[in-house]
Write a protein that binds this DNA or RNA. Sequence first.
DNA 1: GTGGTCTAGACCACT
DNA 2: GTGGTCTAGACCACA
Lengths: 124, 124, 124, 124
Amino acid sequence: MIIEIDFNSDEAIYIQLRNQIIMGIATSEIQEGESLPSVRQLAETVGINMHTVNKAYTVLKQEGYIQLDRRKGAVIALDVNKIEAVEKMRAQLRILLARGLCKDISRVEVHEMVDEIYDEMIGG
Amino acid sequence: MIIEIDFNSDEAIYIQLRNQIIMGIATSEIQEGESLPSVRQLAETVGINMHTVNKAYTVLKQEGYIQLDRRKGAVIALDVNKIEAVEKMRAQLRILLARGLCKDISRVEVHEMVDEIYDEMIGG
Amino acid sequence: MIIEIDFNSDEAIYIQLRNQIIMGIATSEIQEGESLPSVRQLAETVGINMHTVNKAYTVLKQEGYIQLDRRKGAVIALDVNKIEAVEKMRAQLRILLARGLCKDISRVEVHEMVDEIYDEMIGG
Amino acid sequence: MIIEIDFNSDEAIYIQLRNQIIMGIATSEIQEGESLPSVRQLAETVGINMHTVNKAYTVLKQEGYIQLDRRKGAVIALDVNKIEAVEKMRAQLRILLARGLCKDISRVEVHEMVDEIYDEMIGG
DNA sequence: GTGGTCTAGACCACT
DNA sequence: GTGGTCTAGACCACA
């Protein structure tokens, strides 16, 4: 799994890291039960500070994507609180689609985009 | 148009303000050519700092939702750069759907959610 | 409210800080809705690093004692999840009383101690 | 006597080990004069590192629960320094009850909890 | 002026 | 060797 950070982005590095790891889980590049690299190792690979990786891992834990195992480090462990997840997604979709409406993006186009992204991710 | 700020949210106040104004445009509560309240007035109504309102308006201008007129203040004026808007939406949908996949939200459920939100907004 | 840190303690500074703030809430020295000092201010007063205070505040937020208000800073706001709190207390009492049993501390003595501490705190 | 470690807990493994052994002594599952398993054996049974078991035993010795004998290994031997034990318990009860007060746990409920735990342990 | 983010280096606890 | 903790300094976003 390749992680690439855009240092010119206005998104915080730990957020980019978190997002890419979530993408990795979604596309099954990393699977439930597997371990992420140690904070020091990933920090060196990516070229950032250990503490920044640590923050990304902490957030991933809070959001229910990993668990910190004292022997194996950060292990993929999905805590599926679906009700919460659905509400969170709905809130974010709402603003996303509102933006789309203002920019003349049609309902059909959104549905197409959703399907394209799903096909990308699950390798359909 | 009612604006409500959650001061305990982890989202910046000016972002919440921007989002709610975009929602207002999408749902036609405010229409093209109409003016937003003055910076001072909105700040007072909502109970926040003038600088914060200013920042929200500046962002809305940069993103092509309003224009700042010396006499009429902030006027709704949509600058539809659709190609850019589509790419922006695609990038955000990608991480949103990745999160959904991890949390067992199915493709069908996402499509349903999209339709529900569209119906809410355009009053279908 | 006076905060004192024992730099020779084996307890982490941010834990000592958290505990003393919880004590302050329990004894009503600080009340619901009041603000804690800013991280910089408290750090200076106590003579520790800003980041350490920040960590204490973060933990207090996660545990449901404060909320971070973007205008007022850290505000006392008790999130009473009693079921969770009771289970947490039971788990900790279990090991505490087990230690007591091994050290010949009687059930009566524990009850007395509990009453003494309650009287101290609520000023009975 | 069954020992179970939660590798995802934020409590160090050697602390969990220590606590469970103290629980075993308190509930008379292991009695004064009896031996604990050898470091090697316990490490293998539980699936942890030998050093970790060693650390737990060392702490138990320092706290006056066992003695380390070259031939018999770790033997339960209670060193009752009651005054010290009472002060230690009082300090920990103080923060525990402060937490309880904040979470609306009443004095009566604490007394009930104490009795329940005592009954569990001494098989009342 | 405030918190958020990032970096960096150091020490210790834990495995 | 690993993460946890603490310190420190710097810059930026936010109010």
